[in-house]
């Protein structure tokens, strides 16, 4: 594969966030390139979710700067961040069990018959089918109630929905949580196909093995700071394990 000049999509510089006396993020800097999959790992309370909430526009940092495609932005709200192409799939997936796959995928972005305020189900079915096929997601039918899908299929539908509106940056919060190995592998495939389409992904994970399998680079967050930032290599797992073990030992003393 020929390496093209990396195109920076997101850069974060010196982000800090305090909640009263608690410092959630001390001085976090992070960068993300086009089509890159960045693994964000760290212990509970290390600040992962705070960082994700800042990037989605849910909370504002006390200090620091955020650049999108080289331009400084203030991510003042979730809809605003979304309008800039930043989408998030939370652990709860935000799917409605009682509705079909295609209604879930078009929830709040429904297709109508022009000015007639009736749902154009045929168009939504067709577009949903095409979009899922493009991402290589296999479902029995887009008419299936989401409740009848497996955990992996539900995750896939949620991801497909998130990237259907021209997302450039996708944040995935533990996309493999509570999932079997085979289903997990299918989600990892999906992340790879997004990468090939030029979507940049930040993936939060606890299971280092899975994270390492799909990510290009790993950032380890410890007590509000990024302490490790390296491309994934054969040695990554050992290196990370060592750092984390050191943290545990320090904590135990």
């Amino acid at each position: 594969m020929s390496e093209q000049a990396p195109e920076e999509v997101l850069r974060i510089e010196g982000i800090a966030k305090r909640y009263g006396a608690v410092t959630a993020l001390r001085h976090v800097s992070l960068r993300l390139q086009r089509g890159e999959v960045l693994g964000l790992i760290g212990d509970n309370g290390a600040g992962k979710s705070t960082l994700i909430k800042i990037i989605t526009g849910f909370i504002q940092p006390d200090d620091g700067k955020i650049f999108l495609h080289g331009n400084e932005v203030k991510l003042r709200s979730v809809p605003y961040a979304r309008s800039l192409g930043i989408e998030t799939v939370y652990q709860d997936l935000a799917l409605v069990n009682e509705l079909s796959v295609y209604h879930n995928m078009f929830l709040k972005r429904e297709r109508l018959f022009g000015y007639v305020p009736l749902l154009n189900n045929a168009a939504m079915r067709r577009e949903a089918r095409e979009h899922l096929a493009q991402l290589g997601i296999n479902l029995p039918s887009v008419d299936t109630e989401v409740a009848k899908l497996s955990g992996g299929q539900r995750q896939a539908v949620a991801i497909a929905r998130a990237v259907s509106s021209n997302a450039k940056i996708l944040l995935l919060d533990e996309p493999l949580a509570a999932m079997g190995a085979r289903e997990g592998a299918q989600i990892l495939d999906l992340i790879r196909s997004l990468k090939r389409k030029g979507v940049s992904v930040i993936m939060i994970g606890h299971n280092y093995v899975q994270v390492l399998e799909v990510c290009d680079r790993i950032n380890l967050l410890q007590r509000g700071e990024i302490t490790y930032d390296k491309p994934v290599t054969q040695n990554s797992l050992e290196e990370i394990n060592e750092i984390v073990m050191r943290e545990y030992r320090t904590a135990a003393q």
Partner: peptide, 19 residues
Amino acid sequence: SRTRWGLHTFAVGGNPLGA
């Protein structure tokens, strides 16, 4: 069954947080 109002009514009852 055929308008946004109806679809959103199902969504609100099925998964308020998600909706």
